[in-house]
Amino acid sequence: MSALLEVSGIGIAFGGVRAVDDVTFSARAGEIFSIIGPNGAGKTTLFNLISGVYRADRGSVKLAGAEVGGMAPEQLAARGLSRSFQNLQIFFRMSAVENVMLGRHIHEDKSAWRHLLGLPSTARQNRDTRARAMALLERVGLAALADRQAGSLSYGMLKRLEIARALAAEPRILLLDEPAAGCNPTETAEIDRLIVEIAKSGIGIVLVEHDMKLVMSISDRVLVLTYGRVLMEGVPGDVARDPRVIEAYLGAGLPGSEGSHA
């Protein structure tokens, strides 16, 4: 399999501090590629660089062979990259199903003229979008709450709602930033199952997660980040045994004992 996402030599500095420095990795379609590291290692910053939220100082990002470095998030969305957020970014004033419907924005007609006129084609498209959104809600177990305002849902539900919204875009590659953070064991198992299922459908997954049990059990490959740099990359078994990884985590708590984080 060829690489779907290729990140090479990417880096950014904030006020002289190199938050992410010379990070290189690649992720394939249908694979679960995890990024772990102590708090402040630069995992979320790396996601922000790849997804166009921040602009990298150097390095390149390729999506399916094409250079996409410096592109805005909405341009990346159109090219098949989607993501979730560590701190929820939910449309709280909209209903659950509308949140997911928005996820289909890149596949919808964008002519404001037709929207103002309320043409039958727009109504048809709305029905189609809603049906697809409902199917996704079904998949993440939220169908019964489709018309509830998102602001009234629990934290664990919102985490799944974000995944459903990201999936609605039908991405080729999906970046998940701590999808199980703050969830109870049942919810975590649910999300675990969901991620594996998504990867099986052929979508490449890049996962940042603190729950080591989850990471080690579902990942194909793992990248370890410390102080913004790549410490090592390998299959879960090798990573868990590597003395450097254990040492890196000793400063911030052992992998797997991670309970609380900012």
Binding site: S51, V53, A72, P73, E74, L76, A77, A78, S82, R83, F85, Q89, I90, F91, F92, R93, M94, E98, M101, L102, G103, H105, I106, E108, D109, K110, A112, R114, H115, L116, L117, G118, T122, Q125, N126, T129, R165, A166, A168, A169
Partner: peptide, 25 residues
């Protein structure tokens, strides 16, 4: 009409989170 359309959903979405709306395209 507008509010019930993709444009309407997009404009309501950016009220809550511009960044999430952008990531959704």
């Amino acid at each position: 009409n507008l509010l019930a359309s993709p444009t309407g959903r997009a404009l309501r979405a950016l009220h809550d989170s511009e960044i999430a709306a952008r990531v959704a395209g």
